[in-house]
Design a protein around this nucleic acid. Structure first.
Length: 431
RNA sequence: GGAGAGGUGACAGAGUGGCCGAUUGUGCAGCAUUGGAAAUGCUGUGUACUGGAAACGGUACCGAGGGUUCGAAUCCCUCCCUCUCCGCCA
């Protein structure tokens, strides 16, 4: 009955220091019932012992029987005896299977424990501003919300996108499409310079993959599902890419493994409203370059800072004002131990737009995904995984459109994009 | 989509009902041999859960899931995947 243990948390920590986990659950505002988890763990282990003990007896008897002549009276007597034992094993096994199923379900609800450096607070108001860049650039005399730019619909066609697919699925055309391509190529080439291997992954994944990265079982509603094959469209490249090494043991010397991937991302995002979803602010399909790293546990927090810096560098090169937030426990996701968000200033809307999220998952995803490495002592242990957007395309485009509007109504293209975009302005000049 | 073949440890490849967690070879690690190396010899070399302070045990895993049986890598069923041929197709 080979089943797969999926736990996010180190079960040993859970047993030996439940109070630490309890505090972490409370800090994250999770409704996980730790006592139920602990009880299930206890019941499971008791049942396991029972079954294993019976099996052990069964095995010993089988070895004896193998030595006896097939038709002999002793053999026949043994068979009768073993029939009862076999029935008992079967019964207890069925029981155990149920116990394990509910235990598995419960254990999957325990969130990752936040790192000590994460501020403890119940909601987003507790997020800390880690740094701000480009304060002096926030004044943009000709700025206006990008969705009010007169020529925008010529480059990002929301109406036809709505007709063909639905709200939140625009057509990019002409310079809009060119801008998407320019940004993607810029992001990828910078990632490559930073030592990331480029990957182009599948855009739909199976349930096992979605579970490993934490989309399932809880956030099922975030993903589009195929009707016939129970596959899920990816909400981010993180999902297929992190699963690349699922059920594999990596060589310690190969760490860190760094991968970048450009993909479209699909999000159903139930419960969005108002200005949040206007224009390019929030789409059901958008493009993003994602960075993913598998690292040695001792290196993961250093790698998180590096990841954040790499993402920041992109925004700086695009000359967009931004701030970095250190997310508090209450605003941290289920899977994350520590997370930075990078937000660009959109001068037209006069608001910050999240364009990157850089997270350390520690061993959480790796444990679920079965991605491990063998350390110097020959012990197998989970790697740490990290990922970060670098960057999400539409919101960067929104900020560029708003902040770089010029007196004539066109948008100035930042210098770093010129090799990719091929011209210095975008849009139609007002007459 | 049709026909056939097959999925066993890092790889190759035995095994067709009990003595098989699994012969053997290669690879890898250590030791011996050597001035050093090659070659050779010896030893070791899976994962997960579980018991234990540890030493050291127990159980499971031969693509996945069910079934038959006292007992399954071996027999039966379902599914998945790979390969070959045909068809179709960007």
């Amino acid at each position: 009955m080979g089943f797969y243990i999926l736990s996010m948390i180190d079960l040993k920590v859970l047993r030996e220091d439940p109070e630490r986990v309890r505090t972490a659950i409370a800090n994250k505002g999770s409704d996980c019932d730790l006592d139920a988890v602990l009880e299930a763990d206890r019941v499971r282990r008791a049942g396991l012992r029972e079954v294993e003990d019976l099996r052990s007896r069964q095995k010993a008897a089988n070895t004896e029987m193998a030595a006896l002549p097939k038709g002999s009276p002793e053999f026949k007597e043994k068979v009768g005896e073993m029939k009862r034992l076999a029935a008992e094993v079967k019964e207890k096994e069925a029981e155990l299977r149920k116990v394990e199923a509910s235990w598995q379900e419960l254990v999957l609800t325990v969130p990752n424990v936040a790192h000590d450096s994460v501020p403890v607070a119940p909601d987003p108001s507790g997020n800390q501003v880690h740094s701000i860049w480009g304060e002096d650039r926030k004044e943009c005399p000709y700025a206006r919300p990008h969705y009010e730019i007169p020529w925008l619909e010529e480059n990002v066609d929301f109406r036809r996108g709505g007709k063909v697919t639905g709200a939140g699925f625009p057509f990019y055309r002409g310079d809009g499409a060119r801008m998407v391509r320019a940004l993607v190529r810029f992001f990828l080439s910078e990632a490559e310079k930073n030592g990331y291997e480029e990957m182009y992954p599948p855009l739909v994944v199976n349930a096992a993959s979605a579970t490993a990265t934490g989309q399932l079982p809880d956030k099922e509603g975030q993903m589009y599902q195929t009707v016939e094959d129970s596959l899920y469209t990816i909400p981010t490249a993180e999902v297929p890419v992190t699963n690349f090494f699922r059920d594999e043991i990596l060589a310690e010397a190969s760490l860190p493994v760094k991968v970048c991937a450009y993909t479209p991302c699909f999000r159903r995002e139930a419960g969005s409203y108002g200005r949040d979803v206007r224009g390019l602010n929030r789409l059901h399909q958008f493009d993003k370059v994602e960075l993913v790293k598998w690292v040695h546990p001792s290196a993961s927090y250093g790698e998180l800072e590096r990841l954040r810096e790499e993402a920041e560098a992109l925004v700086r090169k695009l000359e967009l004002p931004y701030r970095v937030l250190l997310m508090c426990t209450g605003d941290l996701g289920f899977t994350q131990a520590k997370k930075y968000d990078i937000e660009v200033w959109a001068a037209g809307q006069q608001r910050w737009l999240e364009v990157s999220s850089c997270s350390n998952f520690e061993a959480f995803q790796a444990r679920r995904a079965g991605t491990r490495f063998r350390d110097a002592d020959g012990n197998v242990q989970p790697v740490h995984t990290l990922n970060g957007s670098a960057l999400a395309v539409p919101r960067i485009m929104a900020a560029l459109l708003e902040n770089n509007l010029q007196a004539d109504g066109t948008v100035r293209i930042p210098e770093v994009l010129l090799p990719w975009f091929g011209k210095e302005t975008m849009g139609r000049a007002a007459r």
